[in-house]
């Protein structure tokens, strides 16, 4: 029974999830990593992508934005600004948001660097969301 890892997601809008899980797969900047209980202590950066949480034999898929993961043998804390469960992703609206962002980026001449950067960030998050949704539709 001790073979669980406590998993929590902390975002500016509060602690959105806090539970004991068997395994979590995270998209880090240096590739996907799977985190099991008794993992070596690591502090790493996350990039937008898919996060897979396995608890009690059930598997949950989430899209996650940029963030950080702090891993200790018994605890996995994620610091992020965005996390969405696959079921909550509205494919159409995300696809439209991507189109809009791409269109805006296409005529980037009249955008400030600032706007372009924030658009790109949002785009990356949206693409990650869509990717997760499409892959898990089956």
């Amino acid at each position: 029974m001790a073979n669980k890892i406590h998993f929590e997601i902390v975002s500016p809008s509060g602690v959105s999830r806090s539970l004991d899980v068997d395994m979590v797969v995270l998209p880090t900047t240096s590739g996907e990593i799977g985190v099991l209980p008794n993992h070596e202590p690591i502090m790493t950066m996350l990039e937008p992508g898919e996060m897979v949480v396995t608890a009690d034999g059930r598997t949950e898929y989430c899209a996650i934005g940029e963030g950080f993961a702090q891993i200790t043998p018994g605890r996995l804390s994620i610091l992020t600004e965005m996390v969405v469960k696959v079921g909550d992703i509205d494919e159409d609206s995300v696809a439209k948001a991507i189109e809009r962002a791409q269109a805006a980026l296409a005529n980037a001449a009249h955008l400030s660097d600032e706007e372009a950067a924030s658009l790109e960030g949002g785009l990356k998050r949206n693409i990650a969301m869509l990717g997760v949704k499409r892959r898990r539709r089956a």
């Binding site: 880090t28 240096s30 502090m43």
Partner: peptide
């Protein structure tokens, strides 16, 4: 507790 962390990258 914090000092034992490995930082990636």
């Amino acid at each position: 507790e914090m000092s034992v962390f490995k930082y990636e990258p």
